[in-house]
């Protein structure tokens, strides 16, 4: 358990002339949740596919659970669980059969699998529906089943590619709680997400990726302290841009303007709040700086489609 469960160094991947992963280095520590954050198209999913040996890097080295990848990807995948971005459960089967059939791909005997399945069904909160076809399940149930399926081989390392995208808040919180249980059991998690809140809650360390590169890496609180002022005052209203020019900019270290919203970043919010408190033409929100602020500062606010 001392060797890093996963190391990637100098990873590069081209699609045609377009370089989607441009020299990525990172290493996971045993038992941590490591987050790969980035806007759409940053190269997160490609990085995961490289680490699973599903596509070959054009340069760089990957080692997963002591196995060189892609050379011994098959052996590495024996001890990895994967929650893919899009559900690919088997619609022809029941919940229980989905787990059983998937477990067979690992070469595990039916006897052993049948012994493991009740615990996994409990973990997913699906024990009472074990013999239901999966078409009738809600999005949250499908995600929980996908997570349970990823654990059928009792993996040491679990890859989660945007595991809560498209879920409602209740379902998302259940998934987060389950992932914390996995961490308690000593599993190592590699999570990609563009929900900063998710990363802040779960990850001990994150790497922010953009345009195929890692542009920042560290613990969520450390990244916030390193890259951004600790307090944020968000100001909304028609005259907000005007207010920013006249007052905001001179009383905050940094102001970002998007439409009619102003983000004021500062160490001392008191003068801003004193000015805003009595006003009826502007609304405001005072909060601590979050990982999302760091993310937006580093990757910009323009749309990524």
């Amino acid at each position: 358990m001392n060797a890093p469960p996963l190391t990637a160094s100098g990873l590069r991947k081209f699609y045609g002339a377009h370089e989607v992963v441009c020299g990525v280095d990172f290493a996971l520590r045993p038992g941590e949740c490591f987050g790969l954050l980035g806007p759409n198209g940053a190269g997160k999913t490609t990085t995961l596919r490289l680490c699973l040996g599903l596509t070959e890097p054009d340069a760089g080295d990957i080692s997963v659970l002591g196995r060189p990848v892609p050379q011994q990807a098959r052996e590495a995948r024996l001890r990895i669980g994967v929650v893919p971005q899009f559900d690919n459960l088997d619609p022809d089967f029941t919940i229980r059969e989905n787990l059983l059939i998937f477990g067979r791909y690992f070469g595990t005997s039916d006897h052993e699998l049948n012994a493991r399945i009740p615990d996994l069904l409990d973990f997913a909160g699906l024990a009472s529906r074990a013999d239901t076809r999966i078409q009738t399940l809600s999005g949250g149930m499908k995600r929980r089943l996908t997570l349970a399926r990823a654990l059928i081989n009792d993996p040491e390392l679990v890859f989660l590619d945007e595991p809560t995208t498209g879920l409602d808040p209740q379902a998302r919180h259940v998934i987060w709680e389950r992932l914390r249980q996995l961490l308690k059991r000593g599993k190592t998690l590699l999570l990609t997400t563009h929900f900063m809140e998710e990363a802040e809650r779960l990850c001990s360390r994150v790497a922010i990726m953009d345009h195929g590169r890692i542009i920042a890496e560290g613990g969520p609180r450390a990244l916030i302290a390193q890259h951004i002022e600790p307090q944020v005052v968000e100001v909304y209203g028609e005259i907000a841009p005007d207010w920013a020019e006249r007052f905001g900019r001179s009383h905050a270290e940094r102001c970002e303007i998007t439409g009619e919203t102003i983000f004021c970043y500062t160490h001392d919010p008191a003068p801003l709040i004193a000015d805003l408190d009595g006003r009826s033409d502007l609304r405001y929100l005072h909060r601590r700086a979050s990982l999302e602020d760091v993310f937006l500062k580093l990757t910009g606010r323009e749309l990524r489609d």
Partner: peptide, 14 residues
């Protein structure tokens, strides 16, 4: 359509 092969490729099959 079902992405069954994608799921299988995450297991130790090629």
């Amino acid at each position: 359509v079902q992405k069954t092969w994608d799921a299988i490729l995450n297991a130790p099959l090629t």
